[in-house]
Design a protein around this nucleic acid. Sequence first.
RNA 1: GGCCCCAUCGUCUAACGGCUAGGACGCAAGCUUCUCAAGCUUGAAAUCGGGGUUCGAUUCCCCGUGGGGUCACCA
Length: 472
Amino acid sequence: MSSDKKVRVRIAPSPTGPLHIGTARTALFNWLFAKKHKGEFILRIEDTDSERSDKKFEEDIEEGLRWLGLNWDEFYRQSERGAVYEEYLAKLLDSEKAYYCFCSKDELEERRQAMLAQGLAPKYSGRCRAIPAEEARQKAGGGEPYVIRLKVPDTKIEFNDLIRGKIEFDGSLMGDMIIARENGEPLYNFTVAVDDALSEITHIIRGDDHISNTPRQIFIIQALDFEIPEYAHLPMILNPNKSKMSKRSDNVSLESYIKSGYLKGAVLNFLAFMGWHPTDDREIMNIEELIKEFSLKRVQKGGAVFSDEKLDWFNNNHIRTTDTKELLELAKDFVPKSWKLNEAMIESIKGRINRLDELEETLRFYFELPNYEGALLKWQEMNFGEVELNLNKIKDVLDNMDENLKRDKVQKAIMEIINNGSRGEYLWPLRVALSGQKNSPGPFEILEALGKKESVKRVDLALEKLDIPETY
RNA sequence: GGCCCCAUCGUCUAACGGCUAGGACGCAAGCUUCUCAAGCUUGAAAUCGGGGUUCGAUUCCCCGUGGGGUCACCA
C-alpha cells in the first residue's frame, strides 16, 4: 500500500497540559520508526479547542521533545489551518456527504440520556439528513444555528492494525458524527483525517485508546477520497492498578522526571521498553541501538504497567556509563551553586545513585564535613590508640605526596604501609575521617576528590576527636 | 450497558505448534569487601478457566472469566 512511499509519521499532542510521559513514549515510537525507515517525523499541535489550549503547554511539549532529542522535520498548528478545514468541509457539503443539522443541544442530550438508560450506545437519529440540501443551506445561511454532520454509512468497516491485525467496526452503530460545531470550528476526528492525509502521513502510530476513533477517521478519509494510511495502535502505559496512566493524579509530566534527575538516555531506554523488546536479551541500549533494532512487529499488545523501580535501574546504569565530564555538567543543576564540583567527586558516586536529585545528599560531605563522633573512627575492636597510630602513619604518607592526589598513586602508597596488616584498621578510620560518615565512597576516591590540603585537614580533625577521652 | 482491545512470574517481557517455559526489575541468601553501592553466584516466583484442533498447545479456534479503552458541539 505504501511500501514505496517515503515513511512519514507524526505526533499530534494537544496543548491542554504539560508533556505527558505517555505522549513522550508515543513520540519516541514514531520517531524511532521514522529514523529506522529514513522517514520524516512531524509535530502537529492539535489546538482546535481554543478554550482548553494554552500556548504555555505548547512550549512545554516542544521543550520536552527537544530535551529527549526527538527532533521533528516539520511543524504546524491546527489553529492556523482554518481555511483548509473550511475548504474540505465545503467539499463534503457540496458532495452531500455531510449535511447541516439543526437539532438543539437540549434535545440531543435528552435523547442521548434516554438511549444510555436503555443500555444502548448513544447515536444520532439522522433526522436532519432528510432536509433537502438546498433548504438546509438557506436555513444555515439565514442565521439558524447548526452543526455539520458526516453521513456515516450503515456498513461494516475494517482496518488492518500493524500490531493487532484486523479490527472491525459497525458503521450502523455509530450514527452521523459531528465534524464541525456550532461556531464553525472543525472537530478532532475531522481535522486529524484531513491533516494526516494532506501531510501524507503513511503510518499512524498512537495509543490504543484511539482505536475507536479509527473507523470514524476512515469514514472521513473515504468521504474525502483520500488514501487510507497504515495504523499501529500501541498498548497503553498503565498505573500499578492497571488504569490508564493519563488519569493518574500524580505527576506524570516529563518535566517531573527531568526534575528528579533522570537522564534522557535512561528515559528513552525505559520508554522504548514499555511495550517493545529487541530480539535478544539486551536491555541497556542507547538511542542508536534502539533505532537499529526497533520494529513495530515486536510491539506488545497488552498494556504495560509503569515501574518506577525499573526506571531507576535504567537510570543508575545510564549514569554509570555517562562520560564524567558530561555528568559533571548535568550535576550542577542538582547541587547548591556554591559547591565547586570536580570530576573525581562525580567519578566517586557513579553507580551509587539512581537519580541526580540524590546528588546533593550524596555529595554533601565533600563540602560540609558532618560533625561525627570520634568513636565512629574505630573499626571493629580497635581502640583510640590504634586508630591514632594508623591515622598518623597515613598522614605521614600524605605529607610526602603532591597536592594533586592521584587515586592510583595515593592508593599504592597507603597500601604499602598497610603491607600485610588489616586493611580495615587503616581504611575505615581514613574513610570516616575524610567523609565523616558511616557509608561513603572509598577513601582513595575521596582523597583524589578532596586534594591533599583538605584531606590532611580532615585527618587532623579526626586526630583531635581522638584526644577526647574514650567514654566507652 | 453497547462496541472495541487485551490476557506468560508482583512488574517489564522471551519462546517457526516441539528441550526442565528463558531474561530483566524488585525480593531473599551467599560471595567479594574498610562501609554503602556496584559486581558475581544462587533461590522463590508465571502460561486466567473450560472445551476443542493436533502425535504434541504459552502459541491456533470457540465459550467463559478477568482487566482495560471508548461511547461530547474535548483531543
